[in-house]
Simulated assay, not measured.
Amino acid sequence: MEIVVLIVTALAGALSTFYCCRRFMWSPVRASALLSMVVALIFKVFPDVVSPYLNQTIPVVFIGATFIGMVSSRQTTSYLGIGLAAVVYSVILFHTSEYFEGYGGALGTTACVALLVILSSRYMRSDKKAFAGSRKVVRKLQKPLRKP
């Protein structure tokens, strides 16, 4: 049951940050900081609402999930993509967070990996997998050179 609560927490953190950035035009840093501060204060002021494990873990998972919500709307405009990235973030965080020690922090690195998985999934579904970024180069090479 605790895992489900933490996955919902990650979803709430990522989606609320993304929503505040798009709807209220907050900067990503402001949205992440304000929402994280509110959640941390709630669990600091009311520590007996949930178990001690969840009391310590929910703010950490929420803060890391807000990093996912800080993604630029140029990269993704889909709430579904943000939600999937939050679920991937939760799974990665629970299983491999100790491996990311020293790589800029486990939360930020895990959020980055989760976003990269979701953002690269569009290329995995495409029939142009290997050629997605190289089409311009091929077109330039196929054009004949001008004679001087």
Rank of each mutant, 00 (worst) to 15 (best):
V29E: 14
C112K: 00
S72E: 12
T77G: 14
I82F: 09
F94P: 08
S27H: 03
A10M: 08
Y99I: 14
L145F: 00
A85P: 04
N55I: 10
S78R: 13
M37V: 13
R146N: 03
G83E: 07
L84I: 15
A10R: 07
W26G: 03
R122P: 04
L34I: 13
T109N: 03
L84A: 11
S72W: 04
C21S: 01
N55W: 12
L11W: 05
T66P: 05
A14G: 15
L145S: 08
R30M: 12
F18E: 01
R125D: 08
K143A: 11
R122I: 01
P52Y: 00
R146Y: 00
C20Y: 09
P28L: 11
F131R: 06
A10F: 06
G133V: 08
K136Q: 03
V50K: 00
L41C: 09
L35E: 12
G69D: 04
G105V: 05
F24P: 03
V5M: 02
A132Y: 09
T9W: 01
I118T: 06
S73M: 12
V87R: 01
V4K: 03
V38K: 08
V117C: 09
F67K: 07
A132F: 09
L93Q: 11
V61P: 09
I3C: 01
G13W: 11
L119Y: 02
T57Q: 06
I58T: 11
M124H: 08
Y89I: 14
F67V: 14
C20I: 12
R122V: 03
P144N: 04
W26K: 08
S72R: 10
R74N: 14
L11M: 12
I3A: 03
V38H: 06
A65E: 10
V49N: 00
Q75T: 15
L11R: 11
P59E: 05
F100P: 07
A111D: 13
S78K: 14
L107W: 07
N55P: 04
F67P: 12
D127H: 07
T110N: 10
I42F: 15
V137Q: 03
A12T: 13
T110H: 05
G102Q: 10
T57I: 06
L145V: 06
F18G: 01
Y53G: 00
P52W: 00
G13T: 14
D48E: 13
P59G: 05
G64C: 13
L116K: 00
V8H: 02
Q75V: 15
V88L: 14
V45Y: 15
F131D: 10
F18P: 03
D48C: 01
L116P: 00
S121C: 04
L84Q: 08
F62Q: 05
L115C: 12
A111R: 05
Y19Q: 10
K44N: 12
G108Q: 07
G69Q: 07
L15I: 15
I68T: 14
L6A: 02
I63Q: 14
Y19H: 13
K143N: 12
I63T: 15
Q75R: 12
I42H: 06
I42R: 07
V39C: 10
Y103V: 15
A114Q: 04
L6E: 04
T96H: 07
D48V: 01
C21I: 12
R125N: 07
R74V: 11
R139I: 12
S72M: 02
K129G: 09
